[in-house]
Amino acid sequence: MSEKHVVMVIDMQNGVFATPRRQRQECAAKINRLMAAADRVIFIQHIEDGGLEEGSEGFALLSELEQPADALYVTKTACDAFYQTRLEQVLAENSIKNFVICGCATDYCVDTTLKIGASKGYGITVAEDAHTTANRPAAQAETLIAHYNEVWRTLTVPGNPVSVKPVETIVAQWQAN
């Protein structure tokens, strides 16, 4: 049997998007494209006081995301989705060693989870056109997204390089398998 095609979607929640994010609709559409081609989807949702309380409207995933019936869900309280969560248990229970990562925010939770996951030995591909962030005081969102894609392309994790690809390339490669 070929390897599972898994997508990990980070923090695409109403409360996170209370702060405007770059190309919300385009990012959500790309994530939907990935999820439609995937065998498995894992939604990571942040819990925090001030609008991201579990069960609240802010905690809920964006309405434009299509949630597969068999999706897996993991909650977190830190930028790192592995930090004091059941993520590693969920990955092990589902025999997941490799996944595509996407979501929000590029420069916080996506970046942190990707780096920790790669250091733990997970094979990670970044969907370069399916993550987003907000404008920050030091840089605009567009610059941050391009910057992090480049950082991830050149990230040094001996024996476990991170891959950075557009959604259509990822989907085409999955369909070829």
Rank of each mutant, 00 (worst) to 15 (best):
I96W: 03
I96V: 05
K97E: 10
K97T: 11
N98H: 12
N98Y: 12
N98A: 06
N98P: 10
N98K: 09
F99T: 00
F99E: 02
F99R: 08
V100Q: 01
V100L: 04
V100G: 02
V100W: 04
V100H: 02
V100A: 01
I101W: 02
I101A: 10
C102T: 05
C102N: 03
G103D: 11
A105H: 06
A105E: 12
A105S: 08
T106D: 15
T106M: 14
T106H: 13
T106E: 15
D107E: 12
D107L: 03
Y108T: 03
Y108M: 07
Y108S: 04
C109L: 12
V110G: 01
V110N: 01
V110T: 03
V110K: 02
D111G: 01
D111I: 00
D111S: 02
T112W: 02
T113A: 03
T113N: 01
T113R: 06
L114V: 13
L114T: 08
K115Q: 15
K115V: 14
K115P: 05
K115T: 12
K115D: 06
K115C: 05
I116A: 09
I116C: 12
I116D: 14
I116V: 07
I116R: 05
G117R: 00
A118S: 13
A118G: 08
A118N: 03
A118E: 04
S119T: 02
S119Y: 00
S119W: 00
K120G: 12
G121D: 13
G121F: 08
Y122E: 05
Y122G: 08
G123N: 15
G123Q: 11
G123T: 07
G123A: 10
G123R: 06
I124L: 04
I124F: 03
T125I: 04
V126Q: 02
A127N: 15
A127L: 05
A127E: 09
A127Q: 06
E128K: 15
E128W: 07
D129F: 03
A130E: 08
A130L: 13
A130V: 07
A130T: 09
A130F: 11
A130K: 08
H131Q: 11
H131R: 10
H131E: 05
T132F: 11
T132D: 15
T132P: 10
T132M: 11
T132H: 09
T132C: 04
T132S: 12
T133C: 07
T133Q: 01
T133F: 00
